[in-house]
Every structure is written in structure tokens, then in C-alpha cells.
Amino acid sequence: MTIPLLEVTGLNAAYGQAQILFDMNLQVRPNEVVAIMGRNGAGKSTTFKALMGHLKNRSGSVKLRGESIEKLPVYQIARRGLGFVPEDRRIFSDLTVLENLDLGRQPPREGAAEWTVETLLDVFPNLAAMPNRPGSDMSGGEQQMLTIARTLMGNPYLVLLDEPSEGVAPVIVERLAKLILELKAKGLTILLSEQNLSFAAALADRAYVLDRGHIVFEGTMAELSANEAVCRAYLTM
């Protein structure tokens, strides 16, 4: 068994007085795609914010490649090779595609896939078609691609991908799925969150199901798809 790339133990997180995550444990191994599944409000985005250090009110241990990162500030976590694509996309709408990409740039990292603007534009041909367009003039799907590409410019070991399919047209969702598989083939490790079983089933190796901040199921994607009770209780079909 390989050592986990990301190992989370006993993660608790709260907004003010309201505790949202309870004692979460999860692992992601190199080159895996792992899905965190759960309905709206289950705590998926909160998990990512807590891992990334945006949510300060948290406890538990988070290890990236065996190194504790839970005490580091956000930018340090990013510099250790954890990439984050937040749910509301958050491209810099004032900046062009190339400028957005440039801001994501970090030095190459030993043992992680290395990206440049050229290689990324190969993978994202629709971005290549609009290098100087400001973010505010892009469609939702294009913005989603741009956020992913921008994060990859940091040559991360692992990307946290928060509900990539949310609010994106069905055609684009399909393209996104293909793209994520392509990234995986290039050696990327991904932890994504998702409500929808079919999208995740096409991509992920393993899944955790989250309900009101508790992990209620963990297993391979095939086991989850076969477990009708869990699917019916906690997921959107």
C-alpha cells in the first residue's frame, strides 16, 4: 500500500458557534480521484475550506505527503502543493485569461506533473481561443475551465475540486468529465465534491458520503453505486 498523499484525521470545523464537521477521517492516495458526496449543506465545501486553511475554526490533523499542514496559513498550504478550485469559480473577472493563468504560477514541484501555459492551453483548447478575453466576458463553463487551469499552473500534487459540475450546461459537464480523466491520466490526484452520483461514478475511484458533517459511508465507487440504501438516503440521483 502506498502512503496517502493526503491524510485527514479527526477533522472538526465550525462557523462561529455552529459546528459543521464532526471527526472526519479521509485519505487520498497518489493518482486517485476521490469523491466527497453529499446533499446541499452536507459540509462538502466546508471540508475543503477547512483543509485549505480558509476556515480557521478547526481541529484535527491534515497531512500532505506526510507533512502536517493544519497549522499553516492558506498561502503556505498552497505552496506545499495543495490546489483549490472553489465552488463559485472565483476567477478574477477584471483580468484576462492569460493574466489569470499567470497569477496561478508556482515553481515546478518534484514528483508532481508540471504545467506551463502552453501545455495547459493544449488541454483546454477553448481557453486557447480566447487568451485576452477578460474573465467577466466568459461563460460559466469557460470560467470553470479557467479556474481549474489556473490552479494547475501551481503544479499541485493534489487538487481540491468543489462541485465542478454545478451550474454548468450538460454538454459542458460531459466535457469536464473527460477533461478530469485526462488530467488523471497525466498523473494528477483529485479530491472532488459532488452531489450527483452519475457524474462522480464516471470519474472517481473511491467515495466518501457526507451527511450533516459526518462521514456515513466510505468505499469504492462500485460499492457505492451498488448500495442503493445509501444512495437513496444521502445522494441526488
Partner: peptide, 23 residues
């Protein structure tokens, strides 16, 4: 690049930190 960072941070400084920039 500094100037672009300023523009980016004006809009969304959390995201800038997520990209590894020391605010």
C-alpha cells in the same frame, strides 16, 4: 505581476491566498 496581483486581490483576496501568494 505585482500590479495584477493588486487587481486580483482587490476583487478576491482569499482566492489570491489560495494560489500561494503571501498577502
Amino acid at each position: 505581476r505585482w500590479g495584477r496581483l493588486i487587481r486580483a486581490a482587490t476583487q478576491d483576496r482569499e482566492m489570491v491566498a489560495s494560489l500561494g501568494v503571501n498577502q
